[in-house]
Each structure stands twice: as C-alpha cells, then as structure tokens.
C-alpha cells in the first residue's frame, strides 16, 4: 500500500482537547466520522482546506496538526 506522506497529530490533539470524540471533531470540521478515522489511521491525506479546518478546530497552527515527510 502507498504510504501517505502527510502525517497528522489529530489523535493527540483530540486527547489534549478534553478527549474530544471523533464524532465531535467530524461535526466541527464538517466531515464524516469515517474521514476522521481514516485521517487518524494515516490512510487519507486531506485537502488543504480540510487541514486548515481541523487545525482551526484545535486552535493550533497548521504545521502543529499536519507534517509533510
């Protein structure tokens, strides 16, 4: 399987945000829970817009939530 080059810290950020559930994050970022599951499993690279939306939910800069390897 092709390895995703964009890594993310979503799971950790959720934990730090009072253990926010995947469903809550999905709702705030306007995506489905399955997309959050795929992102956390590092099996899906989000669009730039979604990456910004997720970073905004956690109130962190983009590079704290997503890294390019």
């Amino acid at each position: 399987m092709k390895e995703q080059r964009i890594k993310n810290q979503i799971r950790r950020l959720r934990f730090e945000a009072n253990e926010m559930t995947q469903a809550e994050l999905a709702e705030k970022a306007s995506v489905t829970r399955q997309t959050i599951i795929a992102l956390e499993a590092q099996k899906y690279s989000p669009s730039l817009e979604l990456a910004f939306r997720i970073a905004k939910v956690f109130d962190v800069p983009l590079e704290k939530a997503f890294q390019y390897n």
């Binding site: 306007s30 995506v31 489905t32 399955q34 997309t35 795929a38 899906y44 989000p46 669009s47 817009e49």
Partner: peptide, 8 residues
C-alpha cells in the same frame, strides 16, 4: 445519514 464530504 451523513452528508458527503471530500473523501466521499
């Protein structure tokens, strides 16, 4: 029912 997102 879920709204379609970019992954879909």
């Amino acid at each position: 029912k879920e709204k379609k997102d970019e992954r879909d």
